[in-house]
């Protein structure tokens, strides 16, 4: 599972991390008992300060999505509410719309845009 951060985005990096991890937990992609990487590791991989990742984890803990224990790290707890199939589809459609908008603005035809998606899906 991958998280992405755009440092030029007006959304603060900790919020970007929180939102992505929360979405993965909600969709069941990160099941209960999954261990999240240590704060230092994720911060180093993203080139961010450890405090930024720590804040994202803290917010997730406040939402009741993860639990942090000394020497055990941060683990996903069983979510009280998971995303329904319709909600997942809606989120996917929104993302697809945004992507198609960018593709159209770039003057790229459908086949090329779809190929780019396929290549990215294969890469990860």
């Amino acid at each position: 599972m991958i998280v992405e951060v755009d440092t030029t985005s007006p959304t603060p990096p900790y919020e970007q991390i929180r939102a992505q991890v929360a979405r993965m937990i909600g969709a069941g992609v990160l099941p209960a008992e999954t261990q999240l990487p240590p704060i230092r590791q994720l911060a180093a991989d993203l080139g961010l300060a450890a405090n930024t990742v720590a804040r994202a984890y803290r917010e997730l803990e406040l939402e009741g999505l993860v639990t942090s224990r000394v020497r055990h790290g941060t683990t996903v707890v069983h979510p009280q509410r998971t995303l329904s199939g319709a909600e997942v589809n809606r989120a996917l459609t929104d993302a697809a719309r945004a992507y198609v908008t960018v593709a159209r603005q770039l003057g790229v035809d459908g086949d090329v845009a779809a190929a780019a998606v396929r290549a990215e899906l294969k890469r990860r």
Partner: peptide, 8 residues
Amino acid sequence: RRAASLES
């Protein structure tokens, strides 16, 4: 744009 895996 930075990306990282969630694997420990």
